[in-house]
Computed example of a mutant assay.
Amino acid sequence: MRAAIITAPEKTEVLEVPTPTVGARDVLVRIRACGICGSDSLYISIGGLPPRQGHMPIGHEPAGEVVDVGGEVSGVAVGDRVVVNPMALADDIIGNGGSTGALADYLLIKDAVRGVSLEVVPDHIPYEVAALNEPMAVARHAVNQVAPRQSDQVVVFGAGPIGLGITIALKSLGVRHVIVADILPERLDKALKVGADAVINSHDEDLTARLIELHGPGDSMWPDRAGTDIFLDAAGVPAVIDAAFGAAKRGAKLGVVAVHKEPISIDFMNVMSNELTIVGSMGYPTEIFEVTKDIVENWEKYNVIISHTFAFDELAEALQCVATPGAADKVVITFE
């Protein structure tokens, strides 16, 4: 079978490797779609992760069709459409330094347990949408971390895949008012399509003034604060943190799911006096299949997140697209 392998820094090849053999507790999945993550670009740039630098399989956002099931596996049948938990085996994480990757014709799910390592989805869900399951679990965990109430007013910074996933999750939970802020008009259009109540172009508009206009004034010992209850950073730029703390009322929360590559200064007098809460979010400790139900119920909205699809034969072009700033939002590889 074919598999995408990082063979050196900045070099990924599609190589012929043996098709896996199914054991009694395993499931073999024919990959039908696999998303490309920003972390894939990072792994490629450094030549892979130890101990597999120079020969590391990649791909950790798969959806596919079950083609073989071990005799000791229950709840999964040949022909089922499935999504996968790449983190199920802590010592062999799929596409993140483990022995296998999902950018391949087939993926062996070792010690397969439905609801732990894989989950079945209905046949009407397109494979490329099902492949969003892993990154959307990241978005759902970010939402769970800030524990929104239905009465809350929220602003999401960044309308990339995670920010859009957060927006869908918030509205699925019945959150009253969700604003999405970004600097790209086309991304803001997508935010409205997936259910945002309002959008702010933070390049062209006064963010705090618009928040006050939309969410009302907020209680604070400092002037010009918005009635926004929760700020969620899915952008990862220092200006977002400055903007959030500059608009935050007493008791507001800031959730951070974006990767910040440099340290950021924070005014702790502001944090203390307004009793602000800062909450980090990483991965998806319990959300990998929690989000699956929402994808099934709202797959048309999640479909909006996908900006490009490429065939596996076009992998080099797809990776270049992902690595080019501003060229794409979510890229998914499809397999015939």
Rank of each mutant, 00 (worst) to 15 (best):
M1C: 05
M1W: 07
T7N: 09
E10L: 14
P18G: 05
V22E: 06
D26P: 12
D26R: 15
C34I: 09
S39C: 13
H55M: 09
E61Q: 15
P62Y: 15
E65A: 11
V69Y: 11
G70P: 11
G71S: 15
V73W: 08
V76E: 02
G79N: 10
D80F: 00
D80Q: 05
N85G: 08
A88V: 15
A88G: 15
A88N: 11
L89E: 14
G97S: 10
A104I: 11
L108D: 02
L108Y: 14
L108E: 04
K110M: 11
L118C: 01
V129G: 02
A131Q: 13
V143A: 14
N144E: 09
V146G: 02
S151A: 15
Q153A: 01
V155K: 03
V155R: 06
F157A: 07
G165I: 03
I166M: 15
I166D: 01
V178G: 12
I179N: 01
L184M: 13
P185H: 08
D197C: 05
D197Y: 01
I200S: 01
N201F: 07
D206P: 08
L207D: 03
T208Q: 03
L211W: 05
E213G: 04
L214D: 00
G218I: 09
G227C: 02
I230D: 14
A243F: 11
A244L: 14
F245H: 15
A248V: 09
K249G: 04
G251H: 14
E275F: 05
T277M: 04
S281Q: 01
Y284S: 15
I288D: 00
E300D: 03
N303G: 13
S307V: 09
H308Y: 04
E314Y: 10
E314V: 12
L315I: 03
A318Y: 12
V332S: 02
